[in-house]
Design a protein around this nucleic acid. Structure first.
Lengths: 204, 204
DNA sequence: GTCTATAGCATGATAGAC
DNA sequence: GTCTATCATGCTATAGAC
């Protein structure tokens, strides 16, 4: 009497395993993500793993794709109402920080996974692709501000975008380490002030 | 006939193992750092491990202490000759970046280890301590500039320091991901310009 | 597709001769 | 202190019944 599991499409099973993998990753870190732990968390027998994924690498790939898509879509998003440049930048940096602060466990887990993926030859392309996509997304946002408010940057927009990303990453990762809300908040404001000063002043 | 190893003090053995652990970590990442790999790399039998370290945690602690001490001592160091504020900041950011660029493998390995240490209850204090020590070191540097050049910041020095660290971290970690020298260089200059604008202008 | 069982190997840690 | 041998465990992946 072997109490068969209900039949599901492979695609559905995969999602189930990806969700379970994220949960395991959040709770125990990258080293806790074993095929056994993932299947157990998903409520599936261990054997289920290998007819959904050929090995661990495709699973990690699926997890990263899923996380990076959803996570990065939100960042720097809110063009909300009309704001001056400094407030716009602060709001963008805050949005990025908020993503980390709202769910630190997941944010940290993603950092772990990205770090891991840089070691795995099968996953290296993902991290690179993600970075490129992110750069494009932020540039698009900044271009929007620039056009909308008639801002003239004293340096090429590309440079502003890179600085914004580096700053946002630095602030979020610092917060992830010290969990100091007020310090992060202050850094956001100071950074926004500094970066806004790179514009010629027409829009501010 | 068991070809005994020469006798060494435990302290010496420990150093030997720490060095080997760093080498293994650089080459293969955190998951490659096993007691066996470390002892093999050190040219010691596996059994040697456990009369030098009670378990893996003390080894990792020793490695982190060693790395963070040497690595962080250099950062933001060169007060060199008289420079204007913007050049000072650029030089500080460059020094931080150079550390990563001169030995990316080690820099990345340290990132991996710090990330790992945040999961291990036995090592969490280390990461926190390191961050605090780093903040103090940078503040000391900035205080020096400030006094020497008679700079008046438009915001508290503490905030400038935090922004500097977040920015330096962001720039280095971006470079670590894309290895784009020119982009990083440019970001350093742009960041320096932006941050220098936070001073009231007396020193520039 | 689904599941059990197991092969085959690597791990951290220890026991105990020297 | 030093080293060999081994234990107990956990891992990925696969074989094969259903």
């Amino acid at each position: 009497m072997t109490l068969q599991q209900e039949h599901r499409s492979v695609e559905e099973r995969r999602e189930q395993l990806v969700d379970a993998a994220i949960a395991v990753l959040r709770d125990g870190g990258i080293s806790a993500v074993t095929t056994r732990a993932v299947t157990a968390r998903a409520g599936l027998p261990h054997g289920a793993f290998h007819y959904c994924f050929a090995s661990k690498a495709p699973l990690f790939r699926a997890v990263l794709e899923c996380q990076l898509r959803t996570a990065k879509a939100v960042a720097f998003a809110p063009p909300v109402t009309r704001l001056d440049l400094e407030a716009r930048i602060a709001s963008g940096l805050s949005a990025h920080l908020a993503q980390t602060r709202d769910d630190p466990a997941t944010a940290f887990a993603v950092v772990e996974l990205v770090t891991y993926s840089r070691r795995d030859p099968d996953l290296q392309d993902l991290a690179a692709w993600e970075q490129h996509a992110y750069l494009d997304a932020v540039r698009e946002q900044v271009d929007e501000w620039t056009a909308e408010d008639g801002i003239r940057w004293a340096v090429p927009v590309e440079h502003v975008v890179r600085l914004l990303i580096a700053t946002a990453d630095g602030i979020s990762s610092t917060w992830l380490a010290d969990r100091d809300d007020r310090a992060a908040q202050v850094t956001v404001r100071v950074a926004a002030r500094a970066i806004a000063a790179l514009a010629d002043g027409t829009g501010a």
